[in-house]
Computed example of a mutant assay.
Amino acid sequence: MVRIGIVGTNMITERLLEAAIAIEDFKLTAVYSRTTEQAEKFASNYGVTKLFTNLEEMASSEEIDAVYIASPNSFHAQQAILFLQNGKHVLCEKPLAANAAEVATMIEAAQEHQVLLMEAMKSTLLPGFKVIQDNLHKIGPIRRYFASYCQYSSRYDKYKEGIVLNAFNPKFANGALMDLGVYCLYPLITLFGEPNEVKATGIMLESGVDGEGSVVLSYDDKDAVVMYSKITNSSLPSEIQGEKGSMIIDKISSPEQIEIHYNDGTTEQLSIEQSHPVMYYEVKEFIDLINSGKIESNVNTFANTYTTMQVVDKVRAEIGLKFPNDEKVI
């Protein structure tokens, strides 16, 4: 049984806990919040009595083995390193940190203290992504990767009313790229590795974050086009084009419906049933890795996470997206 503490009492944490119910070795043991009232309110829904309002006390507690961090992006690195230094395994929400320098420091801490660190990037651990990987060879040499994740945010309505919530506040290392764009970039890096060149454009909002953007990435034998937005919607699927056909993917963030359209006009359905909620698979991977004594996932590897954040940094440099974390040294 792996005793889990959580940092971040929000909707994404609730979804993760709903998925984790099906995992036998997962035991929610402790809850952290900045206030006792919020901690008690959240914990009461799960029968948890061990509460913390001090992260140092939580990190040094002998009552937890691991922690799930779902705080704002700007806090990820500092909080994760604290737990890693105290010998606790860390599952941290995507993006793992605000920039690549922070990611490198987090990886160093995990390796030094021999504990597991994993980015909670759900998409690459889903059955649908395995289907994509296993069938790419059918469409011949790959020439283009296209991924789109454009989802109008209800928080943008508040923004237009003059209320800047966390999602559109650079203080918390947020914005469209960090929230949605990474879902397009991480699978690309996992499938094809680091690109040779990154070019990007974006629409910057007055608050200092991006509302939407586009990225073109170049490889020796292929290119990639990524589009993301929190201020518009899109119904376009994603696609990987090969010389023998194209693979159509319904949602790059959570692929379920996948089919190949061959050049001869035939199609092949590749979709398989996903028997659990989407967040189940990342938690299962995390628990299995702990039980196996691993400090790194074979899928959401340190290299994939670090390379993706390097690309994100390059995109931010191109569009002028800056965070306070960029001036800090952990």
Rank of each mutant, 00 (worst) to 15 (best):
I203N: 13
E57N: 13
C184I: 07
E63V: 01
G8I: 02
A224S: 06
E243K: 13
F302E: 04
F52W: 07
T105Y: 08
I240E: 02
Y159F: 03
N291E: 10
M279N: 13
D264Y: 04
D313R: 04
L91F: 09
L177N: 10
A97D: 14
V103F: 10
A70K: 09
P72F: 08
Y32D: 02
H113T: 12
Q111S: 11
I23N: 07
G265E: 11
S153F: 03
N169I: 07
N233A: 00
V216R: 15
L55V: 10
E268G: 00
S234T: 00
I295A: 02
D264H: 11
Y149P: 09
V115Q: 14
I258P: 05
V215C: 11
L289H: 07
T301I: 03
D179C: 15
I252Q: 11
Q151Y: 05
R34P: 06
G245Y: 09
A176S: 15
E37H: 10
Y149D: 13
Y228G: 02
L126W: 07
P237R: 04
G162Y: 09
K27Y: 07
K171H: 14
L270E: 05
G211E: 12
L16H: 06
A59R: 07
G8W: 02
S207H: 09
S60D: 12
S292Q: 14
D313N: 07
I319H: 15
K160T: 10
A101G: 14
E63Q: 08
L116M: 09
N300S: 14
F172C: 02
L205R: 11
E161W: 12
T232G: 00
A110H: 15
T266V: 09
A176L: 08
Q79E: 05
E102V: 11
N291C: 05
Q78H: 06
R15C: 00
S207K: 08
E93C: 04
G202T: 07
S207L: 08
I6F: 03
G245Q: 13
I295F: 10
S271H: 15
A59P: 00
Y183M: 02
L91I: 03
T124M: 08
Q310D: 01
T124S: 14
H137R: 12
N304F: 12
M11G: 00
F52P: 00
V198F: 07
G140K: 03
D179W: 12
L116F: 13
E327C: 04
G265V: 00
L55D: 10
K314Y: 06
T201C: 13
E63I: 00
Y306K: 03
Y145L: 07
G140L: 08
S297K: 14
K244N: 12
A303I: 06
D65T: 05
T266H: 11
Y145A: 05
